[in-house]
Nucleic acid binder design. Structure first.
Lengths: 167, 167
DNA sequence: CCAATATCGTTTCAGGTGAAACGAACGTCA
DNA sequence: TGACGTTCGTTTCACCTGAAACGATATTGG
């Protein structure tokens, strides 16, 4: 859906006049992560959004429901790390498209019991290979060890964030 | 500025009923990168936005101008990987705050010649240590080797994206 | 039992976003 | 020179976003 002009990759180049050494945005980890992540999101969206008409939030909901249905909205929030408003909208769109079934929870009327419809499961099964292929293409140049280190780094960054937020 | 409810970190847990093994969002690299990156952006914004009144785009513009002034808007686009509309707005805000000076380019009247004002440089010098400290805290648990591998992974992901986009 | 409080999901609201349209300035080529 | 296409930065437009307010349901405490 977005064919952005942004994030076309930017190699850090040499400082020019007025250079203030000691800080380089191009080497700043939050910045690098942000650029790479945005580019990946776009690349992924380009592949499936046109074909399936799914936004990223919708795809995420589809993904967790494909693996863990039935879930309440709140459980989807936890599993996708999206806020409840975003989940609510994505679920509304997916039910409107007939991809998600929405039923009341038998014990607690506040909760929804969300699951994939037959059509939803077909979409899920169709998108998963695309997702996996993109991941393979992205990580093709990474050795198994590098991939393992990358996973560990993300885990530790998450733990560091837990500490920072938990203060 | 944003004290989000989103991205509070979500550990992957065991599949439940209806589990469809073979795909787990929690192990999907684009997803993990996205969650971690968004959390870092928020953590960073919390630290400086209240104190300096800077949005993330503004901070990025400040950062590149602090290191590479003078730059045109287009050069800022390249260096920050933001699209031109976002840069245009950030520059407008920064000039409004008196942090950035805007002059016409002597040879090419289409270009702007942007640089930090004295106040802008003071803000830059004030934010840089905060940025560096956050990065240190985030990567405190990473060994030098892990950090190096992480950098290399990001580089190779970027190269893979170049290929994917360049087609 | 009845308040008071908490939780769930939706909706509202103000603001940010990218894509595209736009005007102005430049370069080109005859 | 002048018509044409290009590049630069701004603005418009439709959409997406998170925070907060909200109604509905459940739970707790008196």
């Amino acid at each position: 859906m977005p064919t952005s002009t942004e994030n076309k990759a930017t190699a850090a180049s040499a400082p020019r006049e007025g250079a203030r050494e000691g800080f380089s945005l191009g080497a700043f980890l939050p910045y690098r992560l942000s650029v790479t992540t945005n580019r990946i999101s776009r690349a992924f969206a380009r592949r499936y959004s046109a074909r399936f008409g799914l936004s990223i939030p919708e795809w995420r909901v589809l993904a967790v429901l494909g693996s863990f249905a039935p879930l309440s909205s709140n459980e989807i929030c936890e599993r996708t790390a999206m806020d409840k408003a975003k989940v609510s909208r994505a679920v509304a769109l997916l039910t409107g498209k007939g991809l998600v079934d929405r039923a009341p929870h038998p014990q607690d009327q506040r909760l929804l019991r969300l699951s994939l419809s037959a059509a939803g499961r077909r979409s899920f099964e169709a998108v998963v290979p695309i997702a996996e292929r993109l991941e393979d293409e992205l990580t093709a140049e990474l050795s198994d060890r590098e991939r393992a280190v990358l996973d560990r780094c993300l885990e530790r960054l998450g733990a560091a964030l837990d500490r920072l937020e938990g203060r």
